[in-house]
Nucleic acid binder design. Sequence first.
DNA 1: GTAGGGCTAAACAGCC
DNA 2: GGGCTGTTTAGCCCTA
Length: 387
Amino acid sequence: MDTNNEALPVAASTLHSPHIVCEALAAHPLLPVQPLSPPTSSPLPASSPLSPLTPSHAIPFCPASAQATQCAPSTAACPPPSQGLDPHYPSLTALGDQDDLTCLSWLHQRGDLLTLLPLPRTTPQPLPVQQDSSHSSHLPSSSSKPPYSFSSLIFMAIEDSAEKRLPVKGIYDWIVKNFPYYRAAPGGWRNSVRHNLSLSKSFRRIHREKGQKVGKGSLWCVCPEYRPALLEVLRKTHHCHNTNNSFYSSPLLLEGGDCGPVVVCDTVEISDSLSQTLLLSSPSPPALPSDNSSLSSDAPIPLTTDQEELVTMETIELHEEISEEAEKDPLTDSGYVEFHYYQYHQYQYLVLPGETELDLETVEILQLDAEAQEAAGSLLDLAGGGH
DNA sequence: GTAGGGCTAAACAGCC
DNA sequence: GGGCTGTTTAGCCCTA
């Protein structure tokens, strides 16, 4: 397959790989993606894709704060993938520290699909001192009421669950666990939770199977069609309460903003079998570092307004070789497509199956998904929960 | 002033 | 019968 390294002009509202150009993603700066290995149900090895150094691959152009490389993902990150497992994946070890490439724990799906594969959470790395102090200044005390609405809390609870569905009690537990305020709060909030579940169209009740004897009541999940709205509310809420150093308030989220996760890794099921990596880039690519050390440089690279407002997405060559594992991948015929977000230093990559079509709305949703990950994961820390 | 969202409280019914 | 779950109604507050 041909390698398409050149940045394509922003086109229509439809992003169709391998030629994908995304414009007007001001607040949704997804970065370049390149073709990778066949979709798998598990996160790609860290040594995969991203290889800005490989000439044959698209080069990410969107610079992000160098702090991104310093900020540990506050949310669950995928266990360090093994290196060099796939010859198609340029080893990142050659590019920098393995720590620079991690992924979030979430694996959630879009549409009416529920959780496919829960990712194990890894111990979040401590934030840099500077950011800690910055965040802490915005953190409500453990005894203060979280700024999030019950809908948001429920949403985060469900999204944070492995199955993307929880019984009412599970939601209670999650809230209490992550927001100590509710431990001592009067029981009325539980009524509010139930009230929200029943009243809000955002949540859907799933009747348990007869065979299930665990607990009472039903399981609750998030209605896919309301997910973007919930994410937006969550984002806005966080934005209002974290005006500084919040990746949530930053359009550079996916690029590893100052306080953003170092890496965003997500899977989204859609529909396809071949895998490819798309590279989203800004129109004004900075000079590519000539050596590996430059890639791991901590020097911040300011993102200009123009770059924020115009982001192009490139498609990089897709390796046509399909491993046996991929062919055997049950997802291949499941009608699902798996997306992977990768962030390597200031660049973010979105890996998706070939021939996958993405419209702008989907791209935006993908970013919101990433934000949701943070919301249900590390955001809890930022919000003062989980402790 | 109004509408909408969110929260709280209460009542009620069904289930285990 | 008690506790939990789910639904519904009502009122209040806040914000756009």
